[in-house]
């Protein structure tokens, strides 16, 4: 559906996006993650045809963004960050204007605006000026704008930023609902949101893709080693270390927590491909130490994100 090849964007001599290549299939919900200033918005703006790339190409269904910009724009619905809309217009007037520019027929316009107002919950605010709407309502008008021509591809730039938790849930619900039939690309820096709504996650840092795949694949590939926390009473660190050390695949055994603790807290690192929990437990079982805690650290997207995007 969308084929991005070596996409590069320079602002004067600052490189915002550096040779990104991506393939997005039809019907995927792709989450673009990255810290502030990573190049998410720039990438999206190039996808929508608003910015022209310095180098590289974007192809949507065999159309190139360089030559067939207008055709591609017809396939894409776009909601920029914080929905910048004309403040002085009424919601209805605005949607009517968008419908005309999108080339909807006169008799089709009204029914389409009705459909969208139901989908995005705008029925009560049709007669109000956009400038006086709250942020969440504006975002919904923006979403209606993006959906006006029933686009095959929907691009959303931080669709939930600045919304309250209820509004976030609402917007996510709408996205999920739309995502059943459409290809959606959304950027966010809220990781739980990406995990909850996206099929696939692309993490960008400093203009480069650092991870790409479903949440599970990313978690799997990132976890080079597993970490187990053990807390034992009536034991001492050295003895425990001696007991576990011989197991194959153990990378390190460290003491965790302070000296004053009654229990001995240990952190064991081992190779990611194997599961040594059973062997470690066997080694402890044969002693008379009391196990207070024994758990493997779960790899969260937060950890991976921080790992991948930290400064140097």
């Amino acid at each position: 559906m969308i084929h991005v090849e070596n996409l590069t964007k320079y602002y004067h001599d600052f490189c915002a996006v550096d040779q990104i290549s991506l393939d997005i299939r039809k019907g995927e919900i792709v989450g673009l993650l990255g810290p502030n200033g990573a190049g998410k918005t720039t990438t999206l703006r190039m996808l929508t045809g608003y910015f022209s790339p310095t180098a590289g190409d974007i192809r949507v269904k065999d159309l190139s963004i360089r030559e067939d910009t207008l055709e591609i724009k017809k396939l894409i619905g776009y909601l920029p960050e914080s929905a910048p809309l004309y403040h002085s217009m009424l919601v209805y007037d605005y949607l009517d204007y968008v419908a005309s520019i999108r080339g909807l027929e006169k008799d089709r316009k009204l029914s389409r605006i009705r459909e969208l107002s139901r989908l995005c919950g705008l029925s009560d605010i049709m007669h109000r000026t956009i400038g006086e709407l709250s942020k969440g309502l504006k975002q919904r008008v923006g979403l209606a704008h993006a959906l006006m021509n029933d686009p095959e591809i929907l691009i959303l730039d931080e669709p939930t930023s600045g919304l309250d938790p209820n509004q976030i849930v609402e917007i996510r619900k709408i996205i999920k609902q739309i995502g059943k039939e459409k290809t959606i690309i959304l950027s966010t820096h809220i990781l739980s949101e990406a995990e909850a709504t996206c099929d696939r996650i692309v993490i960008i840092n400093k203009g480069k893709i650092v991870a790409d795949g479903s949440t599970n694949t990313i978690k799997h590939s990132a976890s080079g080693e597993n970490i187990i926390h053990i807390s034992l009473v009536k034991a001492d660190f050295k003895a425990v270390k001696d007991a576990i050390q011989m197991i194959d695949g153990i990378v390190s055994i460290e003491k965790d927590g302070s000296e004053e603790d009654e229990a001995v807290n240990i952190r064991v690192r081992y190779d990611g491909d194997t599961d040594l929990r059973e062997q470690i437990y066997e080694a402890i079982k044969s002693t008379d130490w009391v196990v207070m805690d024994f758990h493997q650290e779960t790899v969260t997207l937060e950890n991976i994100f921080r790992e991948l995007t930290k400064e140097n």
Binding site: R45, Y50, I76
Partner: peptide, 8 residues
């Protein structure tokens, strides 16, 4: 930005 991402 919104205007230019429509087909104009």
């Amino acid at each position: 930005e919104v205007l230019l991402t429509m087909p104009v």
